[in-house]
């Protein structure tokens, strides 16, 4: 009995000592990079065209190009031309813990700058504005939310699309059946197989699925913009020196217009691996975000 109690006590104190050591504050990122000679860059694996793996398993994309510009400036500022870049794959579930525990110093993906996330991390100025819209089978009449009455709408687990409808549902008194899928690919499958009538998501992701579908003409993106979400490059909180490097780099690209060329490369030209062109012209919201850079969250 005594041994059992000791074991339990040991296990509990182990848990708490981990929690306690996790409270230690970290070095500012630039000092950490200088001391270690390494910058750890978090990237996604299939967030097309922002951050994804090409056929050689190398992370590429719009966000990766922007991050490379930031890394160049870090090298210049620290006077470390041979700074080593360590690429770390992250997922939507791991990106925040890996940022707060120091595994990655910069996350280059497609993360919405939200007030919720700002409790843990900080963001550079918005590099993309994602309008949220609906994907339906071509020919479905869905001009406004009212047309969703009695329809099944699919939400990808972990996103807030169901709330967008729910919020409007109240005001408009429409009856929507919420169904769920484990990832975006499965949500698309739900519409393709007729289990759901509409898939509510960021337009850019919907465009990617349509471009990759067997018959892109079978699908359409319809309806009003339900919400606009700013995407940002993620960094640690309360680190003004590093945030300045990130923001100054991005603002510079926006001012010089260089970011337009990078946009052109990923959104309006054929991209690897299948050489598909997303053909998504810059929205007015994004143009505004480039003229008046902001790191405000939603």
């Amino acid at each position: 009995m005594f041994r059992k109690a000791t074991l339990i006590m040991a296990a509990i104190s182990g848990v708490f000592s981990v929690a306690a050591s996790a409270e230690d504050t970290t070095l500012p990122t630039l000092q950490k990079i200088k001391a270690s000679g390494i910058i750890n860059v978090g990237h996604r694996e299939s967030s097309i065209p922002f951050s994804y793996l090409d056929d050689k398993q190398k992370p590429i994309g719009y966000s990766m190009d922007l991050c490379n510009k930031i890394i160049e400036n870090v090298k210049k500022d620290l006077n470390m031309p041979s700074l080593k870049v360590n690429l770390v794959p992250v997922t939507s579930a791991t990106r925040i813990p890996l940022m707060t525990n120091g595994t990655v110093d910069l996350e280059c993906g497609s993360t919405t700058n939200s007030m919720e996330r700002q409790k843990q991390v900080a963001f550079g100025v918005a590099t993309y504005v994602a309008p949220v819209r609906m994907l339906v089978k071509a020919g479905t009449k869905l001009d406004s939310l009212d047309d969703l009455n009695g329809k099944a709408v699919v939400t990808t687990t972990g996103t807030t699309s169901d709330q967008l409808i729910r919020k409007n549902e109240k005001g408009m008194n429409i009856d929507v059946k919420n169904v769920y899928a484990k990832d975006h690919a499965e949500s698309f499958l739900m519409v393709e197989t007729g289990r759901a009538d509409a898939f509510v998501m960021d337009e850019i992701l919907l465009a990617g699925f349509i471009a990759n579908a067997k018959n892109p003409k079978d699908f359409a993106i319809v309806g009003p913009t339900l919400r606009a979400e700013p995407y940002g490059i993620m960094l640690r909180k309360d680190d003004p020196a590093f945030k300045k490097v990130v923001d100054d780099t991005l603002k510079g690209l926006m001012k010089s217009g260089e970011i337009n060329k990078i946009y052109q490369k990923w959104f309006l030209s054929p991209i690897p691996p299948k050489n598909i062109n997303l053909s998504l012209p810059m929205s007015q919201e994004l143009k505004n975000a480039f003229t008046n850079p902001s790191d405000k969250g939603v």
Binding site: S92, A93, I96, P97, T112, S114, E116, R117, K119, Q120, V154, T157, G158, T159, T160, Q163, V179, Y180, A181, K182, E186, M190
Partner: peptide, 26 residues
């Protein structure tokens, strides 16, 4: 069963730690 969209316990965990309250997944 969360892979077929059943809103069971692990589904709710993923839902909360997703975009709703992404800051405290642990």
């Amino acid at each position: 069963a969360l892979v077929i969209g059943l809103t069971e316990l692990t589904f709710q965990m993923k839902q909360i730690t997703g975009d709703y309250a992404p800051s405290n997944p642990i």
